[in-house]
Design a protein around this nucleic acid. Structure first.
Lengths: 337, 337
DNA sequence: CGTCGCGTTGTTAACGTTCACACATGACGC
DNA sequence: GCGTCATGTGTGAACGTTAACAACGCGACG
């Protein structure tokens, strides 16, 4: 009964032959069309199980012109934010019946991005999610004329079409406001690498918080997201006795800042308050525990996929509001001495 | 000249028609067969560029029975190790002309694994790389009878076929040996969740280092990789005045241990030495900087892909030696008082 | 009792590649 | 001058699925 060609994986035709129906009926069962008599469906399902039949996606994509696949390109999966986002997007996509092809790159420049997109298009993705953090690339990403929707998922400034993001400016403002609210009259800032959208935006928030109170923002030092750059920045800040509060653009750098301050003999938070950004799992367990800003990547991932699906459903330029980050107050911030 | 059907992406036939050759010639150019006259190739290439032709991978896979795709399933991309490994595998695969479909899951149990593998097989991957850390799953993974090679890339204990890994036992031994070598007579251990291969193996290394010197291993507390579990363990260790050295199974937990010890009034390394595992970017900038064990995930990723390619080339059960981790001595370890 | 309609199934033709050939053309050796 | 061979190119048939439509059986309705 099981007339199967040897050597190759069974096809619909094999299943059909085993049951004694046409391959189209098998196809109907697989796509659960309602037009199949229950007992026919039953028999087909049994044969599928017995033969170990598995649907061939390549053939499916070829015939249907639909790949049921979303592409994603993400950089710096070693960092907390990007990796969390990537996992979230993948989970959300899977929930909605899409595979997510993730291209993870070490560092994302214009060439890498173009290459990644080219590869994804080669896989016939129906949409592409780009988690790109660099401002220069952001504008570039907008000009990509791919034959599929391209959704931006990072570094987004406002409710632009086909873009979801977290309101980094608000995050920077909240963090700085917290410090100013404690009574500090000036907050120093260790930025991320300028040119990165997230770094730029957090910095703007930091400035805005000062100007809103008629204050001058304190010294500013550029970092590169790494703990080491935070450490170097911290050493310089420690020399400046007027610095009583620092807003650091991510938790990894904050680790370095803390070390530098303490090693320089300045107590945290007694002499200097430190506020980070990201709320990595470690941050609550630093010495002292780190006040920081938390971003909900799970929600972001879900939103990214929803927006993508809306674009796929024909909505030309779907928009979504920016997500609001949340301040986590811990032991590293206190009123000035 | 450009006879292109509207609405659809151009196909080989379109390119061929534009140039005035057969579709097979276009195919030959694309697969750079040598059997094409230079000027023909030239003209085909020009037409491809002009029409914006892109090869359809679904059709290619269907016709050739080769997808040029490797699947990978990885859990816990939020952790340092797995995410670094995933990126490395992807990069190495790409270098070798393979796309790597990465399925990132939050947590990997038997069902999730089976589902992920099923999805990957649906994409016609030629091989599957499984980065699974759980011992129970490891044995399970060995029994998977997929129609393609399944390569294990984590938690591997020795040079088993189709498996590459880092020698975690050696890592645990090295870390503990370092502490014993400093003069500590007993080393406590905060383990990862037992049942995870890596946790188990590091623990074995810790025991071996003691027995090799005729010593009894110190107290042992089970953690779950999170800083919080490290903190809880640290609080208990701090109560035990006989504990002068601790080997913590990863850096994240070590962060928590450090906090607990210091908050309990025990100085590090003066009263208690602490050694971690992973060498995360932060660890050198903790207070004090963390002695730890470094694993080279770049090399591992490369090896994983090499092994996979060997399996694909027909080698039934290719093996690779375990990679040796490397001790990084920093400020958190010192001789006993 | 014939015919319409609906539910179920079968038939045939795409989809865009690669593969296995067959077919031209010209060079070369005898 | 003719067979042989290499080089370049074309032809037709897969590959395994979906899409569009045709066909069948059967009950209901006029």
């Amino acid at each position: 009964m099981t007339a199967q060609r040897s050597g190759r994986a069974p096809s619909m035709a094999d299943v059909a032959a085993a049951v004694g129906v046409s391959h189209q009926t098998v196809s109907r069962v697989l796509n659960d069309s309602s037009l199949v008599r229950p007992d026919t469906r039953e028999r087909v399902l049994a044969a599928i199980a017995e033969l170990g039949y598995r649907r061939n996606n390549a053939a499916r994509a070829l015939a249907s012109h639909r790949s049921r696949r979303i592409g994603m390109v993400a950089a710096h999966l070693g960092y907390y934010g990007p990796s969390t986002l990537a996992t979230a997007v993948q989970a959300a996509g899977h929930e909605s019946g899409y595979d997510v092809s993730l291209i993870a790159v070490e560092h994302l420049d214009a060439d890498t991005l173009r290459d990644a997109i080219e590869r994804l298009l080669g896989e016939a993705v129906e949409a592409i999610v780009v988690a790109v953090a660099h401002t220069a690339l952001l504008t570039e990403a907008h000009t990509i004329d791919a034959p599929v929707p391209v959704v931006l998922a990072q570094g987004v400034t406002s409710g632009q079409p086909l873009a979801v993001g977290i309101d980094q400016t608000a995050g920077g403002r909240t963090a700085t406001d917290h410090l100013l609210g404690l009574g500090h009259t000036r907050v120093a800032h260790v930025t991320g690498p300028l040119g990165w959208a997230e770094a730029d935006q957090r910095r703007v928030g930091w400035q805005e918080a000062h100007t809103a109170r008629g204050l001058e923002p304190g010294p500013e030092i550029e970092g590169d997201w790494t703990p080491e750059s935070g450490y170097r920045a911290g050493l310089r800040l420690a020399e400046d006795a007027s610095v009583s509060a620092v807003f650091v653009a991510n938790d990894a750098m904050a680790v370095g800042v803390l070390k530098a301050l303490v090693e320089s003999g300045r107590r945290v938070p007694d002499d200097v308050s430190v506020c980070g950004y990201d709320d990595t799992p470690e941050s609550a367990f630093l010495l002292p525990s780190l006040t920081t800003v938390r971003q909900s990547f799970d929600v972001l991932g879900r939103q990214v996929v929803d927006l993508t699906l809306r674009a796929l459903a024909g909505d030309e330029a779907p928009t979504a509001p920016l997500l609001a980050p949340e301040l986590k107050v811990r032991g590293s911030t206190a009123p000035p001495a």
